[in-house]
């Protein structure tokens, strides 16, 4: 087994994890845990649950590293695991509230010109169109399109009935289509 260290790529680390290298898992953990914690914290207000989800995520990485196909970024692969473990955690303990949009009211004051430039480059018109969606519709789009969850999983994450998620997604799609047409 090759020595795994800070200079190894994520793909190499994951391959080593698949071969049972705990050292590689730790390097991968140290590299990715921080941003995962931050990103999960935007979707779950309880730090204890976030910590638990991070644990579940890396235990899953340990067990299923061999299933990584080499397609796409390792970061995206790990995130997909993490968001599904979060949905699992919410299945066990439904969340009190979904904190994603607590900053929505300050949208206009916070969106500086610089922000808009950044957004324009990242997403073009989509960002603007997303921003003009109502917060309820936007959280649904974020959970389904950007976090890649199914309707049912998004419903669990958002603490909504699946039917509501479906109708909101339909309304959001209609609104976005009109905006981007």
């Amino acid at each position: 087994m090759l020595d795994m260290d800070e200079s190894s790529t994520d793909g190499e680390l994951l391959a080593a994890v698949a071969d049972g290298s705990a050292v590689a898992l730790e390097v991968l953990y140290r590299r990715h845990a921080s941003w995962l914690v931050v990103r999960l914290a935007r979707r779950c207000a309880d730090p204890a649950v976030v910590d638990e989800v991070i644990q579940d995520t890396f235990v899953s990485v340990w067990k299923s590293a061999g299933r990584y196909t080499g397609q796409g970024d390792v970061a995206a692969w790990v995130w997909a695991i993490a968001i599904h473990r979060l949905v699992d955690a919410f299945r066990r303990r439904p969340p009190a509230a979904y904190p994603l949009d607590e900053f929505a009211p300050q949208l206009t004051t916070l969106e500086s010109a610089e922000d808009r430039v950044l957004l324009g480059i990242e997403h073009g018109d989509l960002a603007g169109a997303l921003g003009r969606l109502s917060p309820e519709l936007r959280t649904v789009v974020q959970a389904t399109v950007l976090d890649g969850l199914t309707t049912r999983e998004a419903a669990r994450l958002l603490g909504l009935p699946a039917g509501t998620v479906k109708t909101r997604m339909m309304r959001a799609r209609r609104a976005l289509r009109k905006e981007l047409a």
């Binding site: 590299r31 990715h32 921080s34 941003w35 914690v37 931050v38 990103r39 914290a41 935007r42 970024d73 970061a75 995206a76 995130w79 904190p99 994603l100 949009d101 607590e102 900053f103 929505a104 300050q106 949208l107 916070l110 969106e111 922000d115 950044l118 957004l119 990242e122 997403h123 960002a127 997303l130 921003g131 917060p135 936007r138 959280t139 974020q142 950007l146």
Partner: peptide, 27 residues
Amino acid sequence: ADGRVTSVLATSVEQHLLRCETCRRLM
């Protein structure tokens, strides 16, 4: 990280983080 960005900007940041190791390290 402090949750002091709009959700639209956060979406941009999150999409970027998935592809940029340098910025992930900033977290």
